[in-house]
Every structure is written in C-alpha cells, then in structure tokens.
C-alpha cells in the first residue's frame, strides 16, 4: 500500500467545504513498455491541494481549487463551478505501488505508475 498524499493529511479535502460541488476531471491514460501514465486536467489546483492515493489497487485523484473571486466582484456568468475534482480508477496489479510518482504543472497532473519488473517486455536471447 502506498500513500502519495502530496499534502500533510490532516482533514479530508472534502471536509473543507462540504457544500462545494465536485466534478470529475478529464483524464488521459497512456501505456508504455515500462509504465502507465495518467494525465488529469486540474485547472486552478496548486500542488499542495492535490491528493493522489494508491490503495488496494485503486488510484484516487482528488484536487481542490484555490481560486475564489474577491467578494467585491459580482458574478456575471459562470460556465464552470465546483471547487473539487475527484476520480477513482482500478489499476492493474502489475503496477509497482512503491514507485508511483505524481507531478502537477500548469493545472495538469501527471501520475507515473511504473510496471513491476515481471511484466516488462524482455528480449530473450536465442541460442544457436
């Protein structure tokens, strides 16, 4: 079991503001020979406000937006709401849980899930 919480885990993020809307971030998943790569759009989320967990084969991504408009501003129209992003994936058990890495840059979260050695492609030498 691996806990990749990027922030000290005091309260659960959802408890910060129970009424805030939660949306599912859009996600890409790619596979290479050596790893799985998960890319998630988390606009407005800072690295210290994202929580990535891998537990019992499930990868959970949770992010909290920080951008709140000053109270003096009157909203005119809004097309996106919600201050939480949340999504859970069941991940194949061929992932090396202790080597998962996560990085957040420009609102895009990149999670690298390296494969365990046993499932990596191997070139077998053929003896003549």
């Amino acid at each position: 079991m691996s806990d990749l919480a990027l922030k000290p885990n005091g309260t659960t993020p959802a408890a910060d503001d129970a009424r805030a809307a939660t949306v599912a971030p859009r996600v890409d998943v790619l596979e290479t020979e050596n790893e799985f790569l998960l890319l998630a759009d988390l606009p407005g989320v800072r690295p210290d406000a994202v929580d990535v967990r891998y537990e019992q084969g499930e990868l959970t991504v949770h992010g909290r937006r920080h951008d709140a408009a000053p109270a003096a501003r009157r909203p005119l129209f809004g097309e996106y709401a919600g201050s939480h992003f949340h999504r859970v994936f069941a991940v194949t058990d061929t992932v090396a849980a202790d080597r998962i890495e996560a990085e957040l840059k420009d609102g895009v979260l990149t999670v690298r899930l390296p494969k365990i050695e046993a499932v990596k492609p191997r070139k077998i030498a053929v003896r003549g």
């Binding site: 996600v27 890409d28 998943v29 790619l30 596979e31 290479t32 799985f36 790569l37 890319l39 759009d41």
Partner: peptide, 8 residues
C-alpha cells in the same frame, strides 16, 4: 505510448 483512455 499506447492510448488506454483519452478524454482531454
């Protein structure tokens, strides 16, 4: 890389 899921 091979796509497993593409939403973005």
């Amino acid at each position: 890389a091979v796509w497993v899921r593409q939403e973005r």
